[in-house]
Design a protein around this nucleic acid. Structure first.
Lengths: 202, 202
DNA sequence: TTCTATCGTGAACAAAAGTTTATGATAAGA
DNA sequence: TCTTATCATAAACTTTTGTTCACGATAGAA
């Protein structure tokens, strides 16, 4: 007796997963067949069998095939603006300061508005933030002790650790770099709080 | 004169976005119409007009409608599998090891295949990689001196710095943690090279 | 108020996708 | 080697989807 090729089953599942990862659409039977050099009728047979075995789910009559992996997909992404160097006198998120938009998983971020700051300089090196790193920032005007905040100092968006001294009624911004000094302000406008960092390793 | 309801346009776009986020597939005109209490012919008309205005793209004859939002995300992201703890004896990217898929900007990754490793343990703490951090890994079987690699040691995916001693013909895997010892291998199978890391700051 | 352009609808139509079926090929068992 | 079960294919078929069309309703202008 012959039996349906298990390797082909895996190929089909892998193809669907890969195709979806690239195109964000489920391929048609025709497309699957063409890519694996089998007929779409054969694909249909295989998929019917895989449905019985629970390898594939079907939540809609058409186009509804889902591999187990597709059910694990978290495709809730949001486009977040990346801010690099700031043009003089412009607000942080002015159009001319936005370099690009990057898709970021919604699970990375909660509610609220976000932007990504491309770190420049080495003022936060001890906190692991190096020049060129991308810092995901939640827009807010207040912060808690010790959080890393984005503040506009001399028309430049800088990352510093935030401390509020209630007695002296002043704000201390602390660079995580032994060569740099703390800066004190009576009042400072906070742009947001750093929530995540994306670093290059190579 | 009457004009097409701009509010309805936004409703349609919002519905498509929400439906897609939940179901991973684009809704049909019928589904859109039913949900918004309009006929599918009307939906078809609206979508045709929105295509002209560039609010919606169509990269495939059927099912191909994409809002700008979806389109941008699709064009700029790829779904990458996240691997957490590894089931005994299974290959790294076996289905049971994949926790989820996350959309990652295409600009983060070049050619080749990638996966995301959820770091566990503190063996790379001095390189800034802490427990729970997400490490984007390019699949490859070789590495250069000093790169951070993923290797399977005792059926666990571990991150270590890679050094090859050509004279002694052995591989040294170096944990970036003063409490841990280097490990030496005659031969080791490398799963990939770490290219980026995503860390929580809060 | 009346007229007119056009918007939304339901039905018919066309296009595309999935399923079934008849057929030939072929691997496994006798 | 011969037989048989069943696998893969192509074509016909069914279902679903998107588009077009004729018609009634209605907002805006005169």
């Amino acid at each position: 007796m012959r039996s349906k090729d298990p390797a082909l089953m895996n190929k089909i599942i892998d193809f669907i997963d890969e195709y979806y990862a690239k195109n964000f659409i489920i391929p048609t039977m025709q497309t699957i067949g063409d890519s694996l050099n089998i007929s779409k009728a054969c694909v249909s047979n295989y998929i019917a069998e895989m449905k019985e075995k629970g390898l594939i789910e079907n939540n809609r009559g058409w186009y509804g095939i889902r591999t187990k992996n597709i059910s694990k997909i978290n495709n809730n992404a949001m486009l977040i603006p990346v801010v690099g160097t700031i043009a003089c006198g412009t607000p942080l998120l002015a159009e001319e300061n936005i370099e690009e938009y990057l898709p970021i998983p919604k699970s990375f971020i909660g509610n609220g508005e976000y932007f990504i700051l491309k770190a420049n300089g080495n003022s936060m090196i001890k906190a692991g933030i190096e020049d060129g790193d991308l810092v995901i920032v939640r827009q807010q005007e207040s912060a808690e002790q010790g959080q890393i905040v984005v503040a506009l100092i001399d028309d430049e968006a800088t990352l510093k650790r935030y401390y509020l001294d209630n007695k002296k009624k002043q704000v201390r911004l602390h660079p995580e770099n032994d060569d740099m000094q703390d800066i004190y302000f009576k009042k400072i406008v906070i742009q947001g709080v750093a929530v995540k960092i994306i670093k290059d390793l190579l």
